[in-house]
Amino acid sequence: MRRLVFLVPLALFLGLAGWFAAALFSGRDPRELPSALIDKPAPDFDLPSLAEGRLSSQSLRGQVTVVNFFASWCAPCRVEHPILLRMARQEKIRVIGIAYKDRPEDSRRFLAELGDPFLTTGIDRDGRTGIDFGLYGVPETYVIDKQGRIRKRIVGPVTPALLDRELLPLLRALERS
């Protein structure tokens, strides 16, 4: 009995080491930041649009949509842009842009220069819609299902691998449902 007490430190340490090992070999994507809004309805918003008219959360209903927060001042957004173009033009996915804390003329120039993948682009000048989405920074991408619920959030640029391996299968599945 008394000897067991002396085993406690070892047992605690092995538990800790085992857990570290599990974390190490779990192979989870280090960039995954689970959103507090997963499987919850996307927040309501009603933003002026870059073209004309407005972009509101109502327009998300009924169709699977990808919402991308971007800004002209954000370097990773440039890196990500070709992927968004591919999504919209080749994969025929509905992509909506939200220009986060960006001057509309800068956003326009950005899209004119790199190509415009967005069906509509909302202007979130004060970043309030970003906060409603629980945004960490730009770029950030949300997948919204037909019922208007957030199904996935990607923090940072969408990479080709991420698109092929995770995003496209998810989008196809959502479209079929």
């Binding site: 990773p76 960490y136 920074g137």
Partner: peptide, 11 residues
Amino acid sequence: RFLLALFLFAA
């Protein structure tokens, strides 16, 4: 580190 990198892009 990734988050910090993002943060650096913010004004």
